[in-house]
């Protein structure tokens, strides 16, 4: 239960690295493009090639590799559960082996590994994006990118604010989660073992107070924003001007390469 507050989700690490100094819009587009590439690629090998971006991005972020690797490791288990769903989708092929009522096929296994790798890749790059970009700057980047949608009536600025608040909120929530888990553990809740019924109670004993806490905090934060003159529909300025630089060109070139790999892989022998 310890160390939740140090999980990279929504955390920002001040710094001066390549990624810190790249434009938030470039980083967002890069992440979006890699997502497309990852889901375009059809072979495990191609996705593994794309995964080479992770060590490159770690190097370009100045964040301790051991820390990022550990965070990926912790996530791998959860993402693994999501990916395992692929194993159980019925497929018209002979099973490799049978697991109770379910039969696992070669195709299912491949899909599960693919989903697992893709999600981990996106988690790692997403974590590095938030680690190297302050939430306010990230939200400004999203708003600027989505600005054309304003013309068709999309509330781009409100969306940007919600994004910023959500990012800003994650560490606060994780901290509260840790405190509530400690309090319930002291009252005898065991989060690591027990029968199903006990596990449900353990979950409830954390989730119910966490929701109450989140509502309380969200209300106060919304109030504070309004008090500071934030209006989603009003024009605002930014003391930090966004500008593309050579780093963003490097990101764009890397992305083009990744997309090419993915397209080639798909064209090579997709179904």
């Amino acid at each position: 239960m310890n160390g939740l507050g140090t999980f990279p989700l929504g955390r920002h690490l001040p710094g001066d690295s390549f990624l810190h100094r790249s434009d938030p819009r470039a980083k967002l587009l890069f992440l979006f493009g890699i997502a497309i590439a990852a889901f375009t690629a059809r072979s495990v090998a191609a996705v593994l090639v794309l995964s080479l971006l992770v060590p490159a991005a770690i190097a370009g972020s100045g964040v301790s590799p051991a820390y990022v690797v550990r965070a990926i490791g912790r996530t791998a288990v959860f993402v693994g559960i999501l990916a395992a769903v692929q194993l159980f989708i019925p497929r018209p092929e002979p099973p490799l082996f049978v697991l109770g009522p379910l039969s696992v096929t070669a195709g299912g296994l491949k899909e599960a590994v693919l989903v697992w790798l893709r999600l981990l890749l996106l988690f790692a790059l997403g974590a590095l994006l938030t680690l190297t970009t302050p939430p306010l700057v990230l939200a400004a980047g999203v708003v600027r990118l989505a600005a054309p949608l304003r013309r068709v009536g999309v509330p781009v600025d409100a969306f940007g604010l919600m994004l910023m608040l959500a990012l800003r909120f994650i560490p606060t929530l994780l901290e509260a989660l840790e405190r509530i888990m400690k309090a319930q553990a002291a009252r005898g809740v065991d989060f690591t073992s027990g029968r199903l019924r006990e596990r449900i109670v353990a979950l409830l004993s954390v989730v119910v107070p966490l929701f109450a806490f989140a509502f309380e905090r969200a209300e106060a934060m919304a109030l504070a924003l309004e008090a500071r003159g934030y209006r989603p529909d009003a024009p605002r300025t930014s003391r930090r001007r966004l500008a593309f630089g050579w780093r963003d060109v490097v990101l764009a070139a890397t992305l083009a390469l990744a997309l090419a790999v993915a397209a080639w892989d798909r064209g090579r022998g997709g179904p």
Partner: peptide, 29 residues
């Protein structure tokens, strides 16, 4: 100014946070 300072902080650095209000009023940089 509210009771819990945590609720009022929006930005990643002290100076960016102070700038939030003036930015919302669209003041020149």
């Amino acid at each position: 100014v509210l009771q819990n300072p945590e609720d009022q902080i929006v930005a990643a650095t002290v100076e960016d946070d102070v700038a939030f209000g003036p930015e919302n009023r669209a003041l020149p940089p």
